[in-house]
Amino acid sequence: MVRSKSDLVWIPTFAILVVFAVPWFLWGVDDVVAGLPIWLWWHVGWMGLCALAFSRFTDGAWDRLMGVEADGGSD
């Protein structure tokens, strides 16, 4: 299977999403915003970003990168 340049963008995209899922840089920060710790707001925003990225992935590259047929029908 030949991969296009746009398909190869997903590999580092998901690697970045995994690396920053745990906010290492916020360890020990006790700041509170709107009654919740800042690290919790990080997770809320990060999960929104992950959902958006996965939505874009499923719309455009899922069939090619997961090795499934694009017709969507079953036999």
Rank of each mutant, 00 (worst) to 15 (best):
A15P: 02
A15T: 12
A15Y: 01
A15F: 08
A15V: 14
A15N: 03
I16Q: 11
I16E: 05
L17K: 08
L17I: 14
L17W: 10
L17Q: 02
L17M: 13
V18E: 13
V18K: 14
V18G: 12
V18M: 13
V19N: 09
V19Y: 14
V19K: 10
F20V: 05
F20E: 01
F20S: 03
A21V: 11
A21Q: 15
A21S: 15
A21Y: 15
A21P: 06
V22Q: 13
V22K: 15
P23Y: 00
P23D: 01
P23W: 00
P23S: 00
P23E: 00
P23I: 00
P23T: 00
W24T: 11
W24Y: 10
W24K: 05
F25D: 11
F25T: 08
F25I: 12
F25L: 11
F25W: 13
F25K: 07
L26W: 05
W27Y: 14
W27G: 15
W27H: 13
W27P: 09
W27A: 14
G28Q: 05
G28Y: 09
G28I: 02
G28V: 03
V29H: 08
V29C: 11
V29Y: 10
V29G: 05
V29F: 09
V29N: 14
V29P: 07
D30I: 08
D30P: 05
D30V: 09
D30T: 13
D31T: 15
D31V: 15
D31A: 15
D31E: 14
D31G: 09
D31H: 12
V32Y: 12
V32K: 09
V32N: 11
V32E: 12
V33A: 08
V33F: 13
V33C: 03
V33I: 15
V33M: 07
V33K: 05
A34L: 14
A34M: 10
A34Y: 13
A34R: 07
A34T: 05
G35N: 06
G35Q: 06
G35E: 07
G35F: 05
L36S: 04
P37W: 02
P37S: 01
P37N: 05
I38T: 10
I38R: 05
I38S: 02
I38N: 04
I38W: 07
I38P: 02
W39Q: 08
W39D: 10
W39P: 01
L40K: 10
L40T: 07
L40P: 04
L40I: 07
L40S: 05
L40N: 03
W41Y: 02
W41Q: 07
W41S: 08
W41G: 03
W41F: 06
W41C: 04
W42I: 02
W42F: 12
H43A: 07
H43T: 04
H43E: 06
V44W: 07
V44E: 00
V44C: 03
V44S: 00
G45Q: 04
G45H: 02
G45V: 04
G45N: 06
G45I: 08
W46Y: 13
W46R: 04
W46Q: 09
M47D: 08
M47Y: 14
G48E: 02
G48F: 09
G48A: 11
L49M: 04
L49T: 03
L49I: 05
L49W: 03
C50W: 10
C50G: 10
C50S: 14
A51S: 11
A51Q: 08
A51H: 06
A51G: 11
A51C: 09
